[in-house]
Structure formats: structure tokens, C-alpha cells
Simulated assay, not measured.
Amino acid sequence: MGAADGVVRLGSRFLGGLEPLHSLIYFAPETEKALVGVGLRPGRMCYFAGRSAAFGAVGPGAVAATFYNFNPELVARHLPRAWTLASPESVVAARYQAADQVLRRLLGDEVVASAEVAEAAELAREASAGCQVYGRALYAAHADLPWPEEPHLVLWHAITLLREHRGDGHIAALVLNGLDGLAALVTHTATGKGFLAAAAKLTRGWSDEQWDGVVDELRASGVMDDGDGLTEKGRLLRRRVEEETDTSSTAPWKHLGPEGAARLFELGRGLTERVVGAGAFPPGVFATR
């Protein structure tokens, strides 16, 4: 395996080794409590406003574009109304408050204050310095936020930047390969590695009719078979999307270097195992690798 392949492989490990340390906030009760505390309504409004607040008082179009696989009609039920209830600045502050609380609950104060967390924070921040702003709208919005001071929050923010940077690249790959938000969700579900179809429709706001219509289109184009699985063409399409996502997301790891990246993944894996073991996610959501 060449050096370039090694960097791509390191980047592809991000989802298992580090990303859960950011994503835990979407499952933690502390998050909704903090966001409701500044005025938002419980439920989806907290997710859409919490993740997009870095943009400012943005409308539903920008969120549907950058979150990608949510029904724009669902987004529009909550934005821009959220900004009449709470300012983006207060939502950002509440999100950091929630991150602090949930990390302390899952890791414990001793681990939060440990040298390992401080080292991981330093490495993750350095990796994020290699992220590229061009075409990365959601990353760029979060990169404009000021850095927190405490190491565990520096780590959380840095992983947020790495996650959104990779996510923006993933959307670019989906667009390049002709998959809109719903088609991307349907084909991802068909891989067997994502949601079940019923959960995907429920959480992303798509009706049975909308879902079935896209399935029919994907069958007609040879991407899906009659059993709602992917054809060989469909499997190649999804593989190409993932490979292009990995390739477009290598800049942070090239910047950090292989030794630093390997050390960050080692530290991140240990912390991820702790939070998963402490019940950060419902069963089956994440498996460390």
C-alpha cells in the first residue's frame, strides 16, 4: 500500500474511530434540555437549529442543501421559526454546554481532565487546520466559530470540523454521481449498512409515496433490483461514492501526517469505546473499528 493509499485509509477510519465523539450529542438528553432551555421546541427543531446555528439565522433552503437527505418540507416546519424563539448565538452556546455535560457524564471528570484527552485535542485541532474551505459550506460555518478553551471541548469542536468537512465532500460525491438527497438515502439503506427503510422515512421526513417513487426510478435505471436491493451497478455506484468521499477528505490527515493521525485514531478509539460502553448510542448505531 502506497503513502497516498495509506492517507485515504486513515481518513476512511474517521467514522469508527473519532466521529462518534461528535455524534453522541445527537442522542444525549442533555442536548435537547439545553436547547429547549434557550427557547427551542423539543424534537426536530433542536436538531436542525442546533447543527445549523453556526450559519446564523439561516432559512430552510440552506439547511436542506447542506444536510442533504432530509425532506425540505420537514426542514421548513422548523426553520426559520426557530430563530424567532432563540438566537443562533444562544443555540451555539447551548450546544457547547450540552457537549460539556454529556462528555463529562460518559467519560467521567477524571478522563475529561486526562493527558490523553488533552493530547487528542491537540492532534485533532492540528488535523482540522488542514481542512479546506472551498465548497465546504457546513464545515466553513463551524470553522468560523471561536475555539473553546477546555481540552475536551476543543476535541469535540475539532471532530465536528473534521466530520462536517468530510460530510461536505460526501455531498459533492453524491451530486457528482447523480444521487439527490432521497436517492442517496434509499441507496444507502439498500446497502444494509444504514437505516431500515421505515426508520429512514420516519427520521428524514419522507412519505411512502415519495420513497416508492424514487425506488421505481432507481429500478428503471438499473441501480436497484425488484427485491429493493442494489444491483451490481448500484453496488459499484455506492462504492464509487465512498471512495470519492475518502479521497476528497484526505487533506486533514496529510496535514497531520501518518504518525500523528495514527496516534489520534488510537486515542480516539479508546475514548469512543468508553462512550459507546457507557450507553451513548442506542444498540447497533455505532460499532468501533
Rank of each mutant, 00 (worst) to 15 (best):
A3S: 10
G6R: 14
G6I: 01
G6S: 08
V7L: 13
V8K: 13
V8M: 11
R9N: 04
R9M: 03
S12K: 09
R13H: 06
L15P: 00
L18G: 09
E19D: 05
L21F: 03
H22L: 11
E30I: 09
K33E: 12
L35R: 12
L35T: 10
G39A: 13
G43N: 07
Y47N: 00
A49P: 07
A49I: 13
S52K: 06
F55I: 02
G56E: 13
V58K: 05
G59K: 05
P60E: 11
N69G: 01
F70M: 13
E73F: 05
L74F: 09
V75F: 11
S90F: 00
V92G: 01
A93C: 04
A94C: 14
V102A: 13
L106S: 09
L106V: 07
G108Y: 13
V112Y: 03
A115F: 03
V117P: 14
V117E: 13
E119D: 10
E122R: 15
R125H: 04
S128F: 11
G130M: 08
Y134F: 10
Y134P: 01
Y134A: 15
A137W: 08
L138N: 07
A140N: 01
A143D: 14
D144P: 00
H152F: 07
L153N: 05
H157G: 00
A158W: 06
I171F: 00
A173M: 00
D180N: 14
L185V: 13
V186E: 12
V186W: 02
T187P: 01
H188G: 08
A190F: 03
G192C: 11
L196P: 07
A198N: 06
A200C: 02
K201W: 05
E209Y: 04
Q210D: 15
E217H: 03
L218R: 01
A220R: 15
S221F: 00
V223C: 02
L230N: 09
E232L: 13
K233I: 02
L236A: 10
V241E: 01
S249F: 03
P252D: 05
K254V: 15
H255I: 08
L264Q: 11
F265W: 12
L267K: 05
G268Q: 11
G268P: 02
R269W: 02
G270Y: 01
E273N: 11
R274S: 13
V285P: 00
R289I: 00
